[in-house]
Design a protein around this nucleic acid. Structure first.
Lengths: 198, 198
DNA sequence: CAAGTTAGTTTCGACCCGATACTATATGCC
DNA sequence: GGCATATAGTATCGGGTCGAAACTAACTTG
């Protein structure tokens, strides 16, 4: 095992710790915790089939009870609102309010980090992104967690189909049309296109 | 600002979250929390001038009280022991016990991640490490945190000096000799060599 | 020697998180 | 249809994190 392997691990760990510290500092003034922001960020990025408590639970690797608590806090602060599902009366959809979206945009992208990212050579940046994505995939697999990718690159997605709106697609799993913007949102049921069908 | 910038940020955040989830899962059986492991890992990597409660506080970006709690737990579990400083009777040195070191070696390097690292092209690995290091530096600077580097590359370090043991050096700040192995340990007082003296 | 600084602990309150038990709704099997 | 089972989500409890503030002890400076 190369010396460098452990080094990369250490750097990733340290970066994670520091990001957490920084986020915590930014959120303190707003009386929020890191997990609150992570939940809001997820809800801003996911599609309408994945904004339930159980999907959040899976994404964040927590338990249902913990997620329920988090959602209660966020709702009390008017950062999200709950909408009952029409078909399945057990499920609740959690939607980020405009106040919630504003908070995410204020806090989420650490200016310091964005600045540092911008000063990196584009080629190095792409390489680093591939490495990080590779590590994330490995972590998800060994912990039996779902990948939560965008519909546009999902196995269930069908681009070629009649009667679609411009840029839209069709999900063969939920049997519904997706708009062009929905193609970019992440989904709980995502599966890589290149996975051999089994 | 390039599209890719935000992407890199998102990947780093997500990787940090997932590392935390995985660590938490591994530590649960041992009745420990992520911050406990982070503390032990720091104490395993730092030198004899940096194993105090205040140094840990600075490294982890917490408050003194929090660190004190953490250390109390770790001491009760016999993962570290406290040694009073000879000169300054206020300071306490926290040393990781063999039991503590064993725990760190068992838990710290996630096998899943190490495996994934090993499958990355060496050139990509080095590039990714540079990018991560760059981001870490940026985060530390904007949050006014110290860098905690190894003595070997520190401004206070003097290699050329008479009467040094083989491979050793001399720290001009604490006015003491460092052995070859101590050169690799991280120090609270670390400053980059290429920083202009001011 | 007094004043101020630094190392570290203690206490408190708000919150995280997992475990467990619970309600309500949906689905599968006969 | 009816019962077992599965699933979505909530409620509660206990142990732990974390920051703020107050505190003791020891060093340093004027």
């Amino acid at each position: 095992m190369p010396m460098s392997t452990e080094n990369l691990y250490n750097l990733a760990e340290r970066l994670g710790e520091l990001l957490r510290v920084e986020r915590r500092g930014m959120l303190r003034a707003k009386q929020l915790e890191p997990v609150h922001l992570a939940t809001l960020r997820y809800l801003c990025a996911c599609n309408r089939f994945s904004n339930s408590a159980s999907a959040i639970t899976e994404y964040l690797g927590q338990t249902k009870g913990t997620t329920s608590q988090t959602l209660k806090v966020l709702e009390k602060k008017s950062l999200l609102k709950r909408v009952a599902d029409v078909k399945d009366r057990r499920v609740v959809h959690f939607l980020v309010t405009s106040k919630g979206r504003q908070l995410v945009s204020e806090v989420a992208p650490s200016l310091a980090l964005m600045d540092a990212c911008a000063r990196i050579e584009p080629s190095d940046q792409v390489g680093a992104e591939q490495v990080l994505a590779h590590l994330i995939t490995a972590l998800l697999q060994t912990n039996n967690m779902r990948a939560f990718g965008a519909c546009g690159r999902c196995r269930h997605n069908q681009r070629r189909r009649t009667g679609l709106t411009e840029g839209g697609s069709y999900c063969n799993l939920v049997k519904q049309q997706l708009s062009a913007s929905e193609n970019q949102l992440i989904c709980r049921e995502y599966q890589r296109v290149d996975v051999a069908a089994g």
